[in-house]
């Protein structure tokens, strides 16, 4: 399984051994975030790091734990109720003039959101690349409510590859203007002409 290195900035003490041992320079970046496009997953950096700040994660995440319908059901119901808690705390804190109650309401709003996030994480929506997450996003983008950030959704759907077979990106037809071949390409992949290898501007969606 291909792996890539990630650095925990909280633990990094800049002993910089990773720079010395990295064969591709992936760990030497101006923002301290390892360049995943250069990382070959050899693990030299995490072996060498004296502060245990670098770990290796799979390049492609495994499918998340399957959830039963019943669990998803109760989790959604609970999350909806936590969301009401969040909304009420948020509405009340905006208008509250008593300073201590205002702080308490803000704390309740934050807390309710964190709990609702955790409930949905364990209610079947842990990873962005799961079929559950992507097909939900695609349903919402297909029939967008007013003002829905459609571009953001489209970009996510085309850049995240599903890891459990639960979501198939719709395919699109292209015509190659170099060799006039017409072909089908999954919208999750970068379109490349199967005949002449042309990409980008040479291809027109039809």
């Amino acid at each position: 399984m291909k792996r890539i290195a990630i650095r925990n900035l909280r633990l990094c003490t800049k002993d910089c051994l990773c720079l010395y041992v990295c064969p591709t320079g992936a760990s030497d970046t101006e923002d301290s975030i390892i360049d995943t496009s250069k990382c070959i997953g050899c693990g030299s950096c995490s072996d060498a790091c004296p502060s245990g700040a670098i770990s290796l994660v799979p390049a492609e995440y495994p499918a998340q734990q399957r959830k039963s319908e019943k669990v998803m059901d109760v989790m959604e119901k609970l999350a909806a109720s936590k969301a009401s808690e969040e909304k009420i705390a948020s509405m009340l804190s905006a208008d509250e003039s008593a300073p201590n109650l205002k702080r308490l309401l803000k704390a309740l709003k934050q807390s309710a959101r964190l709990s609702a996030e955790d409930i949905m994480r364990e209610g079947g929506y842990m990873l962005p690349q799961s079929g559950n997450s992507l097909s939900l996003l695609s349903r919402l983008a297909d029939e967008p409510s007013q003002g829905f950030p459609k571009e953001a959704a489209k970009e996510l759907l085309s850049s995240i590859r599903c890891n459990d077979g639960g979501y198939e990106p719709p395919s699109a037809m292209y015509k190659c203007e170099r060799c006039f071949t017409e072909f089908e390409s999954s919208s999750g992949d970068k379109a490349v002409c199967p005949m002449c290898g042309a990409e980008g501007n040479h291809l027109k969606p039809i």
Binding site: A79, A80, E86, A116, P128, P149, I160
Partner: peptide, 28 residues
């Protein structure tokens, strides 16, 4: 899945993207 649940669901996915160092996906 009322809007409040979707808000939490997607802010959680933002965290999932952040943990995978996908800062642009996190933003979206």
């Amino acid at each position: 899945l009322p809007p409040g649940v979707l808000a939490a669901l997607f802010s959680n996915l933002a965290k999932g993207a952040e943990k995978q160092y996908q800062s642009h996906q996190e933003k979206l």
